[in-house]
């Protein structure tokens, strides 16, 4: 149990910098498409690491199933809305950023 708890803590420690890198990328990146890239990394990988760590630490199956359901819902929501935003931006002729 000690190994499970410690590996869960390690996964949470891995997950938190993804959120911070998503925020910093959202502020620093020059274009709407590159900002979408940073946002999806924070959504998928950061929350995935935190959910897996908490699921390793919680000793019950129902809590684990609920955590995985939350992650699945966030994945569906973020992929759908990011795809909608990117397609709408392409239809509105917003040019992607080029290194000039």
């Amino acid at each position: 149990m000690e190994i499970l708890y410690n590996s869960g803590t390690l996964l949470i420690i891995m997950g938190v910098p993804f959120f911070w890198s998503g925020t910093v990328g959202l502020i620093r990146f020059p274009d709407i498409y590159t900002r979408l890239h940073a946002l999806t990394k924070a959504d998928n990988v950061g929350l995935g690491c935190i959910v897996c760590g908490l699921a390793l630490q919680s000793g019950s199956w129902t809590v684990t199933a609920k955590l995985l359901l939350i992650w699945l819902l966030v994945l569906i929501a973020s992929s759908a809305s990011c795809h909608l935003i990117a397609r709408s931006a392409m239809q509105k002729n917003i040019k992607p950023w080029m290194r000039s």
């Binding site: 959202l26 900002r35 924070a42 950061g46 809305s81 935003i85």
Partner: peptide, 23 residues
């Protein structure tokens, strides 16, 4: 600069709030 940037930031806030609630 665009309206979509603001909406994307609101979505990042939602994901951050979910992570904070789980923790």
């Amino acid at each position: 600069p665009t309206a979509a940037d603001r909406m994307m930031t609101a979505q990042l806030f939602g994901t951050c709030g979910v992570a904070i609630l789980l923790l």
